[in-house]
């Protein structure tokens, strides 16, 4: 079974995010970059499938040179090879353009299953998985927490949590699955895995290599434009409910919830 995992490099969630002077981007100078956690679930699931059914795991990333670190991390976890689409013309692309680049990089490869994270934890768009499936003309199963491959290896049954219930859906291979938290517990890269990662093949491709027109990428080609990034509002001060007795305090609290907060 050949599996492809799409990787996005995102700021570590512990990084302090500063908004840039253009108010449309973030300052990337001091950011620690990590693998998008939802993609990590995809890598783990791909490795488990490979362990069970054999085949190869290829990781594909789009972005600047630093994304090789994230690809190497997946290789250290056990993936077999990596592809990085790196082209200056990609800077500022939106999710649709990224999906287009991924589709072009993936099309010549053999695959039965493609994983993406259900969304990137940086801009929370959640578009790439669906768009990529569309460009490749394959079914997509989104927000999946459990996967079973059919005995004949021709289809998968997947579980999506829905409002406390589980929706079980089925699709023929090849299929695109977007990974949701709960799918698995990603492994740590082992020391020998890390030492071997550097020797594994990692191809770098430009848009021209993939036969793509650079004009369809980058900020100018965005269908979704960022107008402004604003920090979350500062938290206002709390209110201490006063009163002599618990009854008085409860009455005061009820009054405040009703009249000020207007929640009851």
């Amino acid at each position: 079974m050949n599996i492809i995992v799409c990787l996005k490099q995102v700021p570590d969630t512990e990084s302090q995010i500063k908004i840039g002077s253009d108010k449309k981007s973030i300052v990337t100078d001091d950011i620690k970059w990590v693998m998008n956690p939802y993609d990590e679930f995809g890598v783990e699931e791909a490795l488990r499938m490979k362990e069970k059914f054999g085949g190869t795991v290829t990781v594909v990333g789009v972005g600047p040179k630093r994304v090789t670190e994230t690809i190497r991390t997946a290789l250290a976890m056990g993936a077999d090879k990596g592809v990085l689409v790196n082209d200056d013309a990609l800077n500022g692309s939106d999710s649709i353009a990224i999906a287009k680049a991924l589709a072009a990089a993936i099309r010549p490869l053999e695959y039965d299953v493609i994983f993406t994270g259900q969304r990137g934890v940086d801009d929370d768009m959640g578009v790439v998985g669906a768009a990529l499936a569309e460009f490749l003309g394959i079914p997509q199963l989104s927000l999946i927490i459990k996967i079973e491959v059919a005995e004949d290896g021709k289809s998968v049954k997947a579980t999506r949590p829905v409002e406390g219930q589980a929706l079980i859906i089925e699709a023929p291979l090849p299929v695109l699955i977007t990974a949701q938290k709960g799918l698995n517990e990603p492994r740590y890269a082992s020391l020998p895995g890390i030492m071997k990662a550097k020797k594994k093949p990692l191809e770098e491709k430009t848009l021209a290599d993939l036969g793509l027109n650079a004009g369809e990428f980058g900020s100018a080609a965005r269908k979704v434009k960022v107008l402004e990034i604003t920090p979350p509002p500062e938290r206002g001060g709390g209110k201490i409910v006063t009163g002599e007795t618990p009854q008085e305090k409860a009455a005061e609290l009820a009054k405040l919830l009703h009249e000020e907060a207007k929640v009851i």
Partner: peptide, 15 residues
């Protein structure tokens, strides 16, 4: 080096 950084990151995350 890149490898040292990966080992550091792995241990950091594990710890």
């Amino acid at each position: 080096t890149e490898e040292q950084q990966m080992l550091i990151d792995m241990m950091g995350k594990f710890a």
